[in-house]
Design a protein around this nucleic acid. Structure first.
Lengths: 362, 362
DNA sequence: TTCTTCAAAGAGACCGGTCTCTTATTGATT
DNA sequence: AATCAATAAGAGACCGGTCTCTTTGAAGAA
């Protein structure tokens, strides 16, 4: 049964109605599953629909109902296992509630994020989940909120935006991780993050517009200072935005005269690259360099030594934020909720005492 | 400026037209960027649109134009780095051409895949990219094709379906990998795949409905047989569908009396789990077990030893299939193309000669 | 038998855009 | 000055559903 026509005009309710000898309204009632129809007519319409291979046009349906059944998700980087796992959590929760997910990547760039939000709103998604890449410019998020569409924030809170938010205690867990390093005797600890700032050099917290990372750096510096470490901020390194950039940053950190004895990596993608650079330079973990990273990525347990990690409940993070949003979509009037999920540390083998050479020099 | 109304009815073309004192048609011409309008009127309309904060309803737009600007993508498992990288390639190509991507996960289950396809067609995507989880039941894919919507296949070809397809030479590369193991002296080589079949035990190629995997197993068995290995199919293991299942399969393979001396893993997720099990059982790579896996996942280079991998051009795979589809969307009348991308093998440290104990017993 | 009541089916507006067709205005041509 | 063409704006149908309102018809009550 070959088709020569390149475009088969799709079968509509009217077509089915005509075939079944009923009015459009009646056919629509059967096909749309609403209203009251007698059993005989229903059977007729169904038969006609099957014969014609009718497929509802969800677009038209969405337009009249105002609901699309779609949740829009804007994440920083889908390739980062952190996000892909979170998205999995979102998808599972969404599917369970009968929603679908449309995904957009911001590449952690605010202009792309804005365009993505605009697009998703244009597509009339029922609600949005966003990992805001900046806390500075959130006008587009305000717009969503104001347009009456529910918005929920994932992994990054915005103090000024009172919407459902699911995060972890970034500051607290960064403090715990840093304390592990300090307790092991480290005094020269680097913090490496993908977040960048003007000038690419860290000066103060005010430069950091990604809330989760700001919290982490804050926790990191607090513990360092409490331990009497002098100017710990000189070891905060920004701009590990890609594997190549991360290698550059790692090389710079590891080749300097005052090489740190430990590194805290802000995510597993960065940590992996740092680990590679450490190896390439002939350094050993943890003898020469101790390493802790955020996110218990799957590879961290198979390296030699395995890496000590901060285990964020990533899947649950995604699942929870989706559930919160769906609750709102169903008309829950409760005030915005800010969920903070518990986090733990898996101590493995990548932390040891600082190497003597460096300790003596310091 | 607090809004008490929970639902702000959105601004339409008519609203803008009224505000600008022009007809709906004229406002639409300006806002939609088509037709001819004088500069003064254009400015008026734009000003009104800005003042009212007009946002086009893409749904309505799609409905009349018939184009949604969306490419639907159905993949097996978004969490698998193979797919997330391929999706990245698709997204990049799509964005470059002005298309957006809506993603659905099939979990490699044919019924979910069918539902996803139906949904995406309902949403009136302009075209679809699918990694068909089965070559047996492809009626839903035929339907897409017949409905006049372009379809392109990623990573898995279907001989019966004449559509644009991008794959690698799975059979050939599996042969090369197997030969590396055979040349190293191995005679007992296991092949572990996520694909499952009735009875969960491999009998013959006819059971395997995932084309890429069937090709690989075919290549694997061919080389084994050419090398005079007796009944190599007894080492083909199916059903490594999840980390837990993979552990079960790996345990079974490694604890049997005729433990293989080498394993070829069908993807990196499986390989990682197998690697963990090998370690847990106190075995060494490559002294006790040699290991090769499909897909150069990032972790494979940081293990000790690093893993020998089959490097599939995953990103390019996604990019190419998207480009093929987009070409078709733009009306390219050329016959369906079947692209086979080149693949290579990175020989690292996970292959060695078989351990004596086993060789003697065999 | 006539009137009421209610279920079931039909008619047609509507959602927010696009697009064709018609009308009005302007400038050029003879 | 009259005709014509070209340009700009307006009117309204249309896409494929949903949904309200109206009509129809048959059963039950008086």
């Amino acid at each position: 049964m070959k088709r020569t026509a390149p475009k088969t005009p799709s079968i509509t309710v009217s077509d089915v109605a005509r075939a079944a000898n009923v009015s459009k309204a009646t056919a629509a009632r059967v096909l749309g599953g609403y209203g009251v129809v007698s059993d005989t007519i229903r059977a007729d319409v169904m038969a006609a629909a099957k014969a014609l291979d009718y497929r509802p046009n969800e677009l038209a349906r969405s337009m009249t109902t105002g609901r699309s059944g779609i949740i829009g998700v804007v994440v920083g980087d889908i390739e980062n296992p952190f996000f892909s796992l979170a998205v999995r959590g979102i998808s599972d929760a969404a599917r369970a509630a009968g929603f679908n997910v449309i995904l957009a990547n911001s590449g952690e760039r605010i202009d792309v994020e804005k365009a993505a939000v605009r697009l998703l709103i244009g597509k009339r998604v029922d609600g949005l989940i966003v990992t805001p890449s900046e806390s500075r410019d959130i006008s587009h998020l305000r717009d969503i909120h104001r347009s009456g569409r529910p918005l929920a924030l994932l992994d990054r809170a915005l103090p000024d935006l009172d919407v459902d938010t699911v995060t972890v205690d970034d500051r607290g867990i960064a403090m715990r991780a840093t304390r592990i390093l300090v307790d092991a005797g480290h005094r020269n600890i680097a913090y490496v993050t993908a977040v960048d700032a003007e000038g690419h050099e860290y000066r103060d917290l005010g430069q950091i517009y990604t809330s989760s990372v700001r919290e982490r750096i804050d926790g990191f510096l607090t513990v360092c200072r409490d331990a009497g470490i002098d100017r710990p901020e000189r070891y905060v390194r920004l701009g590990a935005t890609s594997p190549a950039e991360t290698r550059r940053v790692a090389d710079a950190v590891l080749s300097g005269a005052d090489r740190p004895t430990a590194i805290l990596a802000s995510d597993s993608v960065i940590a992996l690259e740092i680990f590679k650079v450490i190896r390439q330079r002939g350094l050993r973990v943890p003898e020469d360099i101790s390493l802790i990273t955020f996110h218990d990525a799957d590879w961290t347990s198979v390296t030699t030594p395995p890496i000590t990690v901060i285990d964020q409940p990533v899947y649950a993070l995604g699942k929870s934020v989706a559930e919160l949003l769906i609750r709102r979509l169903k008309g829950d009037p409760r005030p915005a909720e800010r969920l903070i999920l518990p986090t733990s540390i898996f101590e493995r083998g990548s932390v040891g005492p600082p190497s003597n050479a460096i300790v003596k020099r310091a």
